[in-house]
Amino acid sequence: MLIDSIVKLFNSLLASSNIAYNLIALIIYAIIIFLVLAVFGYMFGWVERKLIAKAQYRHGPTYVGKYGILQNFADLVKLFSKASLDLDNADSILYSTALPILISLTIFTVMLLPIFPSIQATNISFGLLLVFVVIAFMPIAIFLSGYASGNKFADISAQRSILMLLSYEIPLMLVIAAIGLISKGYNLQNIIAMQSNAYYIVLMPIGFAVFFIAMLAEIERPPFDLMEADSELIAGWMTDMSPAYYALALFLDYSKVFMSSLLISILFLGGWLGPAPIPGAVWLLIKAIVIAVIAVIIRATTFRMRIDRILRMGWLILIPLSLINLIITYIVFVG
């Protein structure tokens, strides 16, 4: 098949010893991932609007295109056609680079994830750890953006991002340690292969719960959307953003949802594993979409938590739970 041969060519480019070929292949792959993220972000934005509208007895977008499917495109055009803001207090270099850094970090993370056995930028033995090294940079980039914009609301939001980082990063790493224990390594393909008998959601339900909550905090979805808390901080670190930049920030928001739901499906729901007639990549996408929709439903119903409660939850509930998970995993599967 055409797709198969393209993938094969691609993989041979990636595997070749010539660095130039590697770079070209990686750049092409990054562009493809960017497009996938854009398409997913666009569709997810529409689905989110429709679903939340349903929860609120509204119709959501209806006029632009069939079922309002072009509404987001219209909004995008509107955002890009607006005048941009000149910020007097902003550190312009830092401010203008933070968002592109965030987006490239997201793309980099998705590139590291195995979409299919043969589709992955690089298959290294510590892949999972590398993913989380990349993810850990995101709150710091958000901090830089908020700090550099010179707005006080953005500044508070930036401080919150660092505080939250302290509360959810540790349980996240502890759950990953348990995954490493159970699958004897951090190779992502191997982690999926190990789940062929039983998904990790069955083997470590506590770990899944902790990971899901911490991941919601990581990607700033409600009830942990403290950084862009619209009723308190207007838009948090995005308060003073120019409209075109804000469109990028929205794209980033949706891409992070995609990234994290992919990650959860790979680590806990068996990635591309699934009954035969449907191809593995489609299975992965279905699982990721289910996770994303759950995040939307949570968004539609819950209230926002307060920063000190999140810290308390992180240190007093999530860390002990993830430690228990680690110990149970060790006793049951290793010891």
């Binding site: 939340i52 929860a55 609120q56 007895y57 509204r58 409600p222 009830p223 959307d225 808390a229 619209d230 009723s231 308190e232 968004r299 539609a300 119903t301 819950t302 209230f303 926002r304």
Partner: peptide
């Protein structure tokens, strides 16, 4: 009050209805 506590307008729409 739902909005002030950071809820995505759900309670607001219900009460408004």
């Amino acid at each position: 009050i739902g909005n002030d506590l950071g809820q995505m307008f759900t309670l607001f729409m219900w009460a408004y209805m």
